[in-house]
Each structure stands twice: as structure tokens, then as C-alpha cells.
Design a binder for these strands. Structure first.
Lengths: 119, 119
DNA sequence: GACAAACTGAACCATATGGTTCAGTGTTTA
DNA sequence: TAAACACTGAACCATATGGTTCAGTTTGTC
């Protein structure tokens, strides 16, 4: 199973590593849109935008549906729970370090004021 | 400033989009390591691993320091706060949707049991 | 001083990415 | 039915990525 999670994380982090694609998610967060709408927003050819949407769709972050001649794009059902969890583990490590650093600094300050009082 | 954040997110999400590099972070989370150590763990040439470390370093996720003939690698100071915040915005959207879906489902179930009781 | 260890840099390779143009196909609309 | 619209697919291009080998350089050890 680990490999599946790995592949999924590969796909979604790769999808998120492009500013245009993050922008597309931002736009879809507000409202559904067609490929044309998105291409227009990001001043890009339809073909170019379609590729970006395909990347987001493969990662499960966007879902699309053809309605007449328009392809309606909306946020996908998958969410980013795995990704959030992965990142959270690291945030904890870093937070812990900063907390440790804080303690050291506080200690230093306390000792300094003590010395001042003493002298 | 937006462009800086954008470039940073590009770099860090791209860095995270490779299973080997996520593995390197996992290993460094437990203990610092040399390029050799990491290359050994992931059965890769030194040169190959050095490139991965360079990617992580450019993204600010890893910091390195040459000590004698060894390059010591450890988790970088930057953390993943920006990334966590970015993802969190989307998690909220998706959570809200699932909550809404839950309400609908609960409603359906309630109505069904009411009907059963009524008939 | 000689040799091994640990890294570094250049060069190469196959494949992927982010974009384009161009030539379609199917769908509305006048 | 003709024209316009929205998309789709193939082909192309430049550059990036993930790996390798090979030939150094620096540092530690006997």
C-alpha cells in the first residue's frame, strides 16, 4: 500500500508545484469553470490549459465533466488529507526545535537579568 | 512579494514530489546524515544523492555543512509553514463539503426512519 | 608519502514538463 | 445549413529531471 500512497503523494505534490495550477485550484475554490474560462484567466492557449487540468485531474484534485461542448471543471473529491498529514509531521519537528530554541533564549535572558540584579 | 512566495512554494512542492527526497527528509528527521549515508540507504550513486540533497537545500528544507571531507545534512530551518497553510485552506473547503454531504445523508436517513415509523 | 574515503563537477542519456501551432471533431446558434 | 464556439489530439520545441559514468580534489589514516 505504501507504494500507492507514494505515487499519490508524487502526483499531488507535483501538481501543486506549479503556480498556474495552484491558481487554477484557487479559481475553482470560488466557482466551477470551463477550460476556456481558465485559459482566459491565465492567458494561455486552450491546449496548454487542458494539460494543466489533466495533471490536476490525474492527481485527483480536480474533477471534470463534459456538458454539451463545454468541459466543466470543479474541485476534486479527494482532498489533501494525506498531504496535510505528511507535512504536519514535519511541522511538528520544526515547531519542537523552535520551542527548544525559545527555552534556551529564555534561559539566557533570565540568567542575564539575574546577574544584573546580583551585581 | 507574492512572486517570492510563489517561487518558494514551487520549489518546496517540487522537492516533495519525489519519493526519494521525502525519504531523505524522513531519515534526517531521525538523525543527521552524510551524503554517503543517504546514498547508501537509497542505493544510489553519491552524485545522484548529491543532486537530491541540492534540490532539498534550494527549497530550504535541508541545510548542509562540510565537516572535514564529509558533508553533514540536517533538516533546514525554514519548515513547511507556508505549505501547511496553503493546503489547509483547501482542506477546509473539502471538509465543509463533506460536512454538507453528511447533513444531507443524515436528513435522508431521518426521513426514511420517520416514514417507516409512519407506515 | 601512499592509499582510501568522501565528495564534486562535467558530460551524457532517456524521459517528463510546459508551452506552442495546426488541423481536426462535436455542439450551438443565427 | 452555415458559421462560430469549445474542445481535442498530434506534433513539435526548449528546458528540466533523475539518473548514470568518469575523472578529478580534498581530507583522513597508516
Amino acid at each position: 500500500m505504501v507504494q500507492f500512497v507514494d505515487a499519490r503523494l508524487d502526483a499531488s505534490f507535483a501538481a501543486l508545484s506549479d503556480a498556474t495550477r495552484r491558481g487554477v485550484l484557487e479559481q475553482l475554490r470560488r466557482a466551477d469553470a470551463s477550460i476556456s474560462d481558465l485559459a482566459d484567466t491565465f492567458r494561455m492557449t486552450l491546449t496548454g490549459m487542458k494539460k494543466h487540468v489533466a495533471v490536476l485531474e490525474r492527481a485527483g484534485l480536480v474533477a471534470t465533466e463534459k456538458v454539451g461542448r463545454v468541459r466543466r471543471c470543479r474541485l476534486g473529491a479527494r482532498g489533501l488529507a494525506e498531504e496535510a498529514a505528511w507535512i504536519e509531521r514535519y511541522r511538528q519537528v520544526w515547531d519542537a526545535r523552535f520551542a527548544a530554541l525559545d527555552t534556551v533564549v529564555e534561559d539566557m535572558i533570565r540568567r542575564e537579568t539575574d546577574n544584573e540584579r546580583g551585581s
